[in-house]
């Protein structure tokens, strides 16, 4: 094949400039001018609406608008005022540019980004010359020590970040639950007896504290518990875990073993717990085993019992860390 056969079509070049109506028709130009002015005036009206709404529309007045429904008038008209005042300035400017400003397309030439060979050679020569004059090539000791110090200087800011937080220690493995700690309702802080929960009932509980009003979120984030009561014969647990329940009442950490959301969505009929964040589904009768979704571990179960006064209390601390996994977590 010769080159002429592969020759592409010819570039016809930039089409001739087509004049707009407003370019030669004075009436059309006047009309365009009027349109632009109207748009600008609409913007001014928007500003007036904004000022009016800010000062004179009380904050407790509501209006009904189709589609939107009943909504706060102050906020709505303030916003519409702002929207109009801004939008129509823009619309006016664009309409002005489109109809009345010169619309002849122009051509500008590009230049390759690459510098000319001369400039490049000159640059390299300058760098070499200046580098040599500074003795970069010869004074290796200076170079090495400079490299060392520059490398080390980066450590200081890193070290400065050390006090951002304490070391983890056993923070992730410990909760407030211990033998004998009362289970109290969240919110309400009332102690619970087993008979307070019927079959099919749940209760959201926290460990009892002397000053519940000072309960820290840090503690809630580990202590939150869900109590569920089912028929005892429905459990399919090993002997140890079964001994952690009390007459069909079972207690799970409410903090998801996946990413720490509150797993509190309990379906009484299927006896499934669902986490609304990522839809991990846990099966209560088998000890919150994962039956669907991304969670890899069952929810930790807390051993509970009834104390001498007949209240539900923890029988032991959690036997594993609650919440999401972390590197130091043991199986």
């Amino acid at each position: 094949m010769s080159n002429t056969e592969l020759e592409p079509l010819k570039d016809p070049g930039l089409p001739a400039h087509a004049h707009r109506k407003a370019d030669h028709d004075e009436v059309a130009a006047k009309r365009a001018e009027r349109q632009v002015s109207i748009l600008f005036l609409l913007s001014a009206a928007g500003t007036i609406l904004f000022i009016y709404s800010y000062i004179w529309i009380a904050q407790d007045i509501y209006v009904y608008l189709p589609v939107i429904g009943t909504t706060n008038a102050h906020q709505l008209f303030l916003g519409l005022g702002l929207a109009f005042s801004l939008f129509f300035i823009g619309a006016g400017a664009v309409h002005w540019a489109k109809t009345l400003m010169p619309d002849q397309e122009v051509i500008a030439q590009r230049h390759e980004m690459r510098s000319s060979d001369e400039d490049r050679a000159g640059f390299i020569a300058t760098v070499k010359e200046n580098g040599a004059s500074a003795g970069l090539g010869r004074r290796t000791l200076i170079k090495r020590t400079l490299g060392l110090s520059l490398g080390l200087v980066g450590l200081s800011p890193l070290l400065l970040l050390r006090d951002l937080g304490p070391l983890p220690s056993d923070d992730l493995t410990k909760t407030s639950w211990a033998e004998g700690v009362h289970l109290v309702t969240d919110p309400g802080n009332r102690r619970l007896r087993p008979e307070d929960l019927e079959i099919g009932a749940v209760a959201h509980v926290l460990p009892e504290m002397k000053h519940p009003e000072h309960r820290k979120l840090d503690d809630i984030a580990k202590d939150a518990l869900l109590l569920i009561r089912i028929r005892p014969e429905e459990f399919r647990l090993d002997a140890e875990k079964l001994s952690w329940t009390y007459q069909g009442i079972i207690a799970f950490s409410k903090i998801c073993s996946h990413m720490g959301c509150a797993v509190a969505l309990y379906e009484q009929q299927t006896k499934h717990l669902l986490c609304p964040c990522h839809q991990s589904t846990f099966d209560v009768p088998t000890g919150a085993k994962v039956i669907f979704g991304p969670a890899a571990r069952p929810l930790p179960q807390l051993a509970i019992k009834v104390n001498a006064e007949g209240f539900l209390v923890a029988a032991a601390p959690f036997n594993q860390p609650v919440g999401p996994s972390f590197w130091e977590r043991r199986k």
Binding site: G188, R190, D196, I199, V202, A203, H204, E267, Q268
Partner: peptide, 18 residues
């Protein structure tokens, strides 16, 4: 009563006033 999937919220877990 805890209809269908919904669990029961007894009067001790959530008091009548609550």
């Amino acid at each position: 009563t805890g209809p269908q999937s919904m669990p029961v919220f007894g009067d001790k877990a959530i008091t009548p006033q609550e």
